[in-house]
Design a protein around this nucleic acid. Structure first.
Lengths: 209, 209
DNA sequence: GTCTATAGAGCGATAGAC
DNA sequence: GTCTATCGCTCTATAGAC
């Protein structure tokens, strides 16, 4: 039997630092990340960490970047796997919800600002922008298909979607963080919140010519 | 001219500790509150703080309690000053929004869980429960007046309202914390989010007998 | 209710040997 | 890329004099 430390070594120290960092944040809160604690659990001395990351903020930044990438990829996958338009939009929303509840710490880092002096670098933030563009494109598709009023394809439309998603997840993470996406009192309301949005932007009577 | 420290002394040390605590949280993040820093700014030695509060958590708890009371009072005031039903509900929602943007730190303490090892005491939490009851009562009024479908007067109805409110405020606080309620890209969408809710729970065709 | 003194612990980061 | 040693700083909380 290989000891835990030994096994961990084999995965690559850098990878391991990031995983343990998320672990620590889960226990102490996102702002409670400490490189000393990470080093302790990884099984190296704290100064050795600086060979892998330039600073505490650099660790936050990389966790942010990876989290944003996963989120964008989950949305892209959900959209690709669905009929374009409203079906894809709902799939995207649910994908974000499931991912957030499976990884609450990263979700908090991405959508709140829990570490006051940390701002993600431009590079770390880029996947989030790309994700918004994907959502925007599904809104455009839904409008083109006559499923939504043209007003939905707008900055306000995207903002309203993000309000619904972040509202459900915020309430869920703050009140029942361990409930899971399906069981959660708030996260399970996401489809109904989506229905509110769809009804609000229901296309007017005129059909496309 | 009275010096700052002197003036502060006159307001009462306990009051001052709470005000400065909010100040510090605004600068360092909610989780970054430090009694040493509070004592420094108040102009007393840090051990003296313990004559006023038993611990760091006790300070958090009191900030939470006062914040929850203010929120409840703002909602009660908004409801009392409006026609019962939907008008009152919108007024309540906007009151929460304005209060949150005027006091972002307290809003974060109330609706997120930014301090991992702090949970508000039952007493501190009570005003929040009372606020929810007020909101629930306005839903009941709106249903009785035929403004909403009976389904709106339910736990899910309240949860959906809270999702809209916390979603708009979370996005606003995380992305444009200094924008103010009226100017904020997200907070200014609260009335439209409310309209989504109203339309979703529009009463069915039958009138009351 | 304020003070001094102190215990006991934590942290991020750097220098320099191997 | 790991280590030891260390700097310099932060913090919460308690004991006990006034």
């Amino acid at each position: 039997m290989t000891g835990t430390v030994e096994r961990r070594r084999r995965v690559g120290t850098r990878r391991q630092i990031l995983d343990v960092a998320v672990e620590v944040m889960a226990e102490r809160g996102v702002a409670g990340l400490s490189l000393s604690e990470v080093a302790r659990r990884v099984g190296i001395r704290q100064p050795s960490l600086y060979k892998h990351f330039a600073s505490l903020h650099a660790v936050y930044d990389e966790v942010f970047r990876e989290g944003a990438e996963h989120q964008r990829d989950a949305v892209a996958r959900a959209v690709r796997g669905s009929a374009p338009g409203l079906t894809a939009l709902l799939a995207a929303i649910e994908a974000i919800g499931r991912l957030a509840m499976a990884n609450p710490v990263v979700a908090q880092l991405l959508s709140w600002r829990p570490v006051p002096d940390f701002t993600p670098s431009e590079e770390a933030f880029r996947p989030s922008i790309e994700m918004v563009e994907i959502v925007r494109a599904t809104l455009r598709d839904a409008v083109a298909a006559g499923e939504l009023d043209p007003a939905a394809d707008s900055d306000d439309g995207v903002a309203l979607v993000s309000i619904l998603v972040s509202g459900a997840l915020t309430q869920q993470l703050a009140n029942e963080p361990d409930a899971g996406y399906e069981a959660g009192r708030f996260s399970s309301l996401l489809p109904r919140a989506f229905a509110m949005f769809v009804q609000y932007f229901a296309p007017k009577a005129e059909e496309q010519p």
